[in-house]
Structures are given as C-alpha cells and as structure tokens.
Design a protein around this nucleic acid. Structure first.
Length: 358
RNA sequence: CCAGGGGUACCCAAGCGGUCAACGGGGGCAGACUGUAAAUCUGCUGGCUUCGGCCUACGGGGGUUCGAGUCCCUCCCCCUGGACCA
C-alpha cells in the first residue's frame, strides 16, 4: 500500500488531524507505527464504541499501524466510574474486549494493555510526576473534559492526577499517533506541548468523530468541540445510546424516540448512523416503505440518501424503521454471541447487574 | 482539629412540630396533535391495596413528644474559611 493510500484511509478516520503534514512524514518513514486509544470501562458498550470504533481501528491497522488499546481501569477508578470499584471496572473491561472480539475488531493488530499493569512500573509514576511538574494545576484542570467533567465541576485530587496519567500513557506505550475521540484532544494537545521537553516526541493527533446521541440537541453551545461532546452518544443517558446487546425491541423503541426533523440533515442522529455505520459496512441501503408512500428505495451512497432526505423525498419514519432494521441485523450476531457463549454471557450478566455511576 | 454552612424522592430544589408520600422545576411514562421525533396541551410519576386504607421513605443510629423531614444527642460524609505542619 502506498503512502497516499494509507493517508487516504487514515484521513477517513480523522475528523481532525494535528498535523496532516506530520502524519504524512510518519507514514513515509520506515518506522513501525503505534497508535493508541484508551477507554474507561464503564457501563455497557454502545454502538459508537463498538461498531464505529471497530470500523476506525480496522482502517488504521489496514494502513499498517499497530494499535494499542489501553484498558484504563485505574483511570476509571480515579474518575469514580462504577462506584470507583476496581473489580467491577475490570469485569467491564473484559466485557468490552469481548464485544470487540465479537464484532470483528482486527485482533491480530490490536494489543490490549491494562493500566493496572502499566502502573506496576515505578518509571510510569516518575513520568506522571514529571508531566505533572510541567504545568500549573489550572492547566490540568482545563483538561477535565477528557474525563467527561467540566472545568467548573468539583474535581477530586484523583481527577487532577488523571490527565497526567493519560499523558504518561502516550509515551509509555510508545504511541506516535494518538487516535482517540474529539473529546480527548485537550490531553493530546498537552502531550504535544511537553513531549519534546521531556525527551519524547510530538504525537500526531487523529481525532475521530463522536457519534451523535439519539436525543434532541439541547442548548445553544457554540464551541464546536464542546458541542460535539454535549451531543455525543453517552451511556449516562441510556436512551441516547444504542447498546451493543440491545434487543430488537430496544432498538425499535430507541429509534422511534430519536430526534429526526424532516428534511434536516444537520445534527440528525439517524442520518448519521447511515453515514458512519450502514454505508461503512454495506454497499447498498434499502429504505423500506409501504406502497402508499412510494415503495422501497435503494441507495448506493450516503450522499444520495442525504440529498433525497434533504428534499423530503424520504420521510423520517421510514428512515428510522429502515435504520432500526439494519442496526438490528448488524447487532444480532453480537447479541447471539452474548447469549450462547457462556464466558460472554456471564460477563454481560455481571455488567448489567452493576450500578453505573457518572 | 476549630468555626460556619450543608446532606430531602431519578436529578435540582422547597420545607422550620401535626393539614407531608412531602411545594416547584427538570427528567421519565401515558394520551391528544403531526405518517417519526421535537414543540404544545392533559394526566401519571414510592410500594401494596377487597380503594376504606396499609407499609416504606427526608445521610446512619438513638432520644424528646400524643405526633418529627422539621427539636435534642451522637456518628458519617461534603463545602467554605481558619488552625496545625512546612
């Protein structure tokens, strides 16, 4: 694969790339590239983390990049997820890995690394302190959004250490590329700022798109990144998220309730799922309609669907029902896996029994 | 450790000895209206009920009282200052 082909693939993943020039240089080099993402094991996994994440990572690995996935169990504990109970967090971590296995993540080129292993090395903590020493407390507070917290929220001291840990993760894992969501860009930028002074490198940031939640976009936040985070699919608002093991009924109900103004292609979650999921996985997408509404229509690209929707040639209800059917089709093997495989089923049962804390 | 302020249902928040299952708002649910959702309007929103009631609830425990979310004691936790330490 040529550099240009690789670049094209990676650009499909990156809603924002800092910087494209540096990325190109990396791809041109002979170096074995490592990209990383981390996740806090918390609650159930939704389709943004499951399906979309898999699509993106598989593009990265196809472009020849090795991917390291950090199971941020200690971070989750610091951030009070799952009541701050490390055992529960780790169970959720295993469940997450199992979901990705079930939905076709390129396991040969993805390595899972647990934060609870990284922290066993005192070098890790030395680096955390070095990083913490580069900036004022306030500089770290300002990265609070990476933890799903606001700068004005009351943060614990543990939540102050968290961003320094996440920065240390990047260098400890040897990641020349940080490939996380837009909501993580503040720490990635921090890592770029201090990488050289600590004797490391300036990681290239490839931020992927955050899938919209199902709910009506509320308030009038204008800042682009903040707005992205506010509108994203989130498990703290269960009806904004479709979970990987949702039943057919759950999916139907959630889509039925989804925000979907007719003819409006901006911030339309249902349309987004077509773009980022359905057309990524299938060549064609059929909008099923009753005869009295014109009968079925087949689309071969997202762009065509979007145009038709904008012209109100496609009614939201038909779109919703067709998307629900397609998602159900995509998720049904995963659901099956978690029903039939004893290990998977046991994990899911445990995770569902836990109380999720924000 | 000291002083002051707090801890109320899913969330925010009133409440200052009886009329409190607890005002109000948000959210959720149901219905009306739209071929979806949203907006708007209406009802419901602790559990059980033979519908008269019964039970469980206001951080935990104890007490005063005929009666306590409301008063007292005690413990736990959070916030704001201060003290201590450096």
């Amino acid at each position: 694969m040529t550099t240009e082909e690789k670049l094209k693939l990676v650009k499909e993943v990156g809603e924002e790339i800092v910087t494209e020039k540096e990325l190109k240089e990396l791809l041109n080099s002979e170096e074995k590239l490592i990209a990383y993402d981390g996740f806090e094991p918390s609650g159930q996994m939704h389709i943004a983390q499951g399906i979309v994440r898999t699509i993106n990572i598989n593009k990265m690995t196809k472009a020849g990049v090795k991917f390291k996935m950090l199971v941020a169990d200690w971070h989750a504990m610091a951030n009070k997820k799952m009541e701050g109970d490390l055992d529960k967090i780790q169970t959720v971590g295993k469940y997450f890995i199992e979901v990705w296995r079930a939905c076709g993540l390129d396991m040969d080129n993805v390595e899972f690394i647990w934060a609870s292993d990284l922290i066993k090395d005192s070098d890790y903590w030395r680096l955390v302190l070095q990083i913490a020493g580069t900036n004022s407390i306030n500089r770290f507070v300002r990265t609070a959004e990476i933890m799903g917290r606001g700068e004005k929220d009351e943060l614990t001291a543990a939540q102050l250490i968290y961003p320094a840990m996440q920065t240390a993760d990047i260098f400890t894992l040897g990641a020349k590329i940080t490939q996380l969501g837009m909501d993580q860009r503040k720490v990635n930028v921090l890592a770029r700022e201090i990488g050289n002074q600590l004797g490391f490198w300036k990681p290239v940031i490839i931020s992927h798109h955050m899938l919209l939640g199902l709910s009506k976009p509320s308030i009038e936040t204008k800042d682009k990144v903040k707005r992205t985070i506010e509108l994203k699919m989130s498990k703290s608002n269960p009806d904004s998220a479709i979970f990987m093991t949702d039943t057919r009924e759950d999916i139907d109900r959630k889509l039925e309730k989804a925000w979907c103004p007719e003819g409006d292609i901006n911030e339309n979650p249902v349309l987004e799922y077509c773009k980022y999921i359905i057309f990524e996985l299938f060549e064609k997408f059929t909008i099923e309609r009753q005869e009295k509404f014109g009968g079925d229509v087949v689309f071969e690209s997202y762009e065509d669907l979007e145009k038709a929707y904008k012209k109100k040639e496609i009614h939201p209800q038909d779109l919703k029902q067709s998307v629900a059917n397609k998602l159900n089709e995509i998720l049904s093997p995963i659901r099956d896996h978690f029903e039939k495989n004893p290990y998977a089923r046991n994990l899911l049962t445990q995770v569902q029994s836990y109380q999720v804390t924000r």
